[in-house]
Every structure is written in C-alpha cells, then in structure tokens.
C-alpha cells in the first residue's frame, strides 16, 4: 500500500507553504514593526510578539511580518506600518498591545484603516 496519496501530497504542500510564507515573493499584507533602540525601549518587541502569536494562531500564510529601524519619530514609539496589497502604507503610532490587536483585526484582517491610531497614510515605504 502506498504510504501517501496524491491528496496527501497536496496537503503537505499547503501546510509547508505556510511555514515557508516568509520566503514567498507574494503576500497580501505586510506589517513592519519599527524596532530601533527607542522602539524596543518603548515595547516594540511585545508588539512584535503579539503579531507573531496572532499569525501563528490563525495559521495565516499571506501576511509578512517584518521589522525596520527607527522611523525617526522616537517620541511616538512603538510604531508600525501596515501595507495592504494595492493600497498605500499606513503608519500607526504610540501603540500598546490592545491597540495593536485592534489594528491587526480591523486593518490587517478586515481591510479597514483604524484611523484612531493612524499617523499618516502613504508616508514612506520599505523596499520590498
């Protein structure tokens, strides 16, 4: 008897693709956590961990989570940039875990900008 079938082959592919999504060229959304020294001091790592857990928990494969250096607005750290495919990036400032979670649920997942925390739209982009 065969150990795996063609369906299994497809399943393995799906599962593994999720794990490899970081390397995929294509993604629906990209979250950049600004992690300069100031950002980390202000709690950026907690926010990073939060996003990481949420992505892992929901087993999402089309989101890229990345970090970048100081965005230059040290006063308003922690700061993130959310960039949905086809739309301009949105920068959120002075976040905490609760706020970040809302941004994730509403903007990243729902597609609706959380204007309450948004600093600006279309300010700067990361090289992709």
């Amino acid at each position: 008897m065969p150990k795996i079938s063609i369906e299994d082959l497809k399943k393995i592919k799906e599962q593994q693709l999720n794990k490899m999504s970081v390397r995929a060229g294509h993604h629906r959304a990209k979250i950049t956590v600004h992690m300069g020294t100031c950002g980390i001091a202000a709690g950026a790592r907690d926010i990073m961990t939060l996003f990481r857990d949420k992505i892992a928990e929901k087993d999402i494969s089309d989101i890229i989570l990345t970090n970048s250096g100081c965005a230059g607005l040290c006063a308003k750290e922690p700061m993130i940039t959310v960039e949905l495919e086809g739309s301009a990036p949105v920068k959120y400032v002075t976040l905490d875990k609760a706020k970040a979670e809302r941004v994730f649920d509403e903007h990243v997942m729902g597609g609706k900008v959380v204007e309450d925390y948004a600093l600006a739209i279309g300010s700067e982009t990361m090289a992709t």
Binding site: K19, M20, V22, R23, M48, F51, R52, D53, I55, A56, E57, L65, T66, N67
Partner: peptide, 12 residues
Amino acid sequence: MCASPYYRMQLM
C-alpha cells in the same frame, strides 16, 4: 505557547 512556531524571519 504555540504548536508550530511562526517564524517571522528566516535566515537562509
């Protein structure tokens, strides 16, 4: 915390 860890970054 989580069965299969999600790595946000991979170093190849």
